[in-house]
């Protein structure tokens, strides 16, 4: 029993950055844009959030800066892809390479500085429940926010007209354009949203999970988030499930040695990556299913005819 509490806490903390990034990317992809730059946006959110908290000591400012950092990166991507008609795959790759380089540059003087971590918000009454209170109701604001976002995005996509329009643009940009919807503007907003969410995911890493700045600290989480979107068949509830599943794999990694399993740490570190591959294989092996769920215009360039 005494193992379970910390284990659940680890799952939640490991899942939260993935949840943010994957939810954001899902909304971007729902609009028909594949942004492979999640890793780059995340890490920029991580470093700039850390810098902000270091200089202002304000969590609010830090989180806003992270959102802006992710969105600014996303805006760069959006500009290239939507205005300059650049191909989405290489542009996303460039964004990742850029983010990793720029964050290392900015973060040079931040290495080795410690931060206390985001304050925990204990929900009144609920947090005093034995066991459950500790595990579920004493988290920082980002954990709660990530869970709220699952519902907000579900509601937005399925219950609002704006969400319907977003899905329509992702299904057929030509049809949406023919009906007079501003495809480029809608996509740009979706890209910005994805960037902001990735920025928050990054902020969680540098402000709560670690909490400190290390070069390349996202360690492929942006890419895992991309895989999670596929795993989730572009559904918010399943993104939640997927993120917590990966959080679960992370606890294996952290607690295996504590449990006295004689597996080298490198092998345990491989687990999330290998799990991503396995999950992709399982979910992709039915191409019909992917085609029905994936936004039909995903990754296709949009050239309004004349």
């Amino acid at each position: 029993m005494e193992m379970i509490g910390p284990a659940l806490l680890t799952i939640i903390t490991a899942a939260t950055p993935l949840l943010f990034a994957a939810l954001g990317e899902m909304v971007t992809e729902k609009s028909g844009v594949l942004n492979l730059g999640v890793e780059g946006m995340m890490i920029m959110g991580a470093i700039l959030g850390f810098v902000a908290v270091h200089f202002t000591d304000s969590v609010t400012v830090a989180l806003l800066v992270s959102i802006l950092a992710g969105s600014a990166m996303a805006a760069l991507f959006g500009l290239l892809v939507l205005k300059f008609h650049a191909s989405q795959v290489p542009t996303g790759l460039a964004l990742t390479i850029f983010g990793i380089g720029l964050s290392a540059l900015i973060g040079q003087s931040m290495v080795g500085i410690a931060y206390d971590g985001l304050p925990k918000l204990s929900l009144p009454v609920l947090s005093s429940l034995p066991f459950i209170g500790d595990v579920f109701f004493r988290h920082d604001i980002l954990v709660y926010l990530s869970l709220i976002m699952v519902f907000v995005i579900y509601y937005f996509l399925n219950k609002t007209r704006a969400g319907l329009i977003l899905r329509a643009v992702g299904d057929s940009h030509d049809a949406a354009h023919a009906m007079g919807y501003p495809v480029v503007k809608i996509r740009f907003l979706a890209i910005l949203f994805g960037g902001g969410m990735a920025g928050l995911g990054g902020a969680y890493l540098s402000l709560a999970y670690s909490p400190l700045w290390v070069e390349q600290m996202t360690a492929g989480r942006g890419w895992i988030a991309l895989a999670l979107v596929v795993f989730a068949s572009w559904r918010p509830g399943r993104v939640l499930l997927g993120a917590y599943l990966f959080g679960g794999i992370t606890i294996l990694q952290l607690h295996a040695q504590a449990l006295g399993i004689g597996v080298p740490s490198q092998v345990m570190s491989m687990l999330p990556y290998l799990a991503t591959i396995i999950v992709l294989v399982i979910i992709s092996s039915d191409p019909g299913k992917i085609r029905l769920n994936a936004p039909a215009s995903l990754g296709r360039p949009f050239h309004p005819s004349r």
């Binding site: 319907l164 899905r167 329509a168 299904d171 057929s172 030509d174 049809a175 949406a176 023919a178 009906m179 029905l292 936004p295 039909a296």
Partner: peptide
């Protein structure tokens, strides 16, 4: 050419 959304 219809302006329809297949998945909706």
């Amino acid at each position: 050419h219809f302006s329809l959304f297949e998945s909706l």
